[in-house]
């Protein structure tokens, strides 16, 4: 089980991220999770939204270059040690985390972590068999 992350190419200079969030705001897109990766001249904004395909279409129309990447969204308890437990499961299964970030909102003491791994099916199976809740694309709309 995986969810689709949108990755957008942005130049690394003042105002580019803001210009993109302006577009998202205009179309009332709600960001569930967001992270930025950058080099000296460009960066990639990675984020999760409820209505992925619609958002990609909007970005394309506005002239942005983006791609979709399958990532794992795992529900963890919002308390010390919870992330450590989940990472332990991945370690035990020899799964390398390319990058990860946390979701923006949480409810009732739960948080969501986004993991990018090479074999997301294997990672999802490992987490689920250890009773960690892995979110589907449909679940995203709920959180």
């Amino acid at each position: 089980m995986s969810v689709k992350q949108i990755s957008v190419f942005l130049e690394n200079k003042p105002g580019t991220l803001n210009a993109m969030t302006n577009v998202l705001t205009k179309h009332n897109v709600d960001l569930r999770a967001l992270s930025l990766a950058e080099t000296t001249d460009f960066g990639i904004a990675r984020f999760i939204v409820g209505n992925t395909l619609e958002t990609v279409t909007i970005l394309k129309e506005e002239g942005y270059i983006s791609s979709l990447t399958p990532v794992i969204a795992a529900e963890i308890a919002d308390k010390p040690g919870a992330l450590n437990e989940v990472l332990q499961i991945l370690t035990d299964n020899q799964i390398n985390v390319e990058y990860m970030y946390a979701s923006l909102g949480s409810k009732n003491g739960t948080a969501y972590m986004i993991f990018r791994v090479q074999d997301y099916k294997k990672a999802a199976a490992a987490l689920e068999s250890a009773h960690v809740r892995v979110l589907s694309q449909e679940d995203l709309a709920e959180i």
Partner: peptide, 15 residues
Amino acid sequence: EMTQEMFTDNLGEIA
């Protein structure tokens, strides 16, 4: 100019 074909989510690949 970046193109759709060149773009990937992987920073290392682009670098």
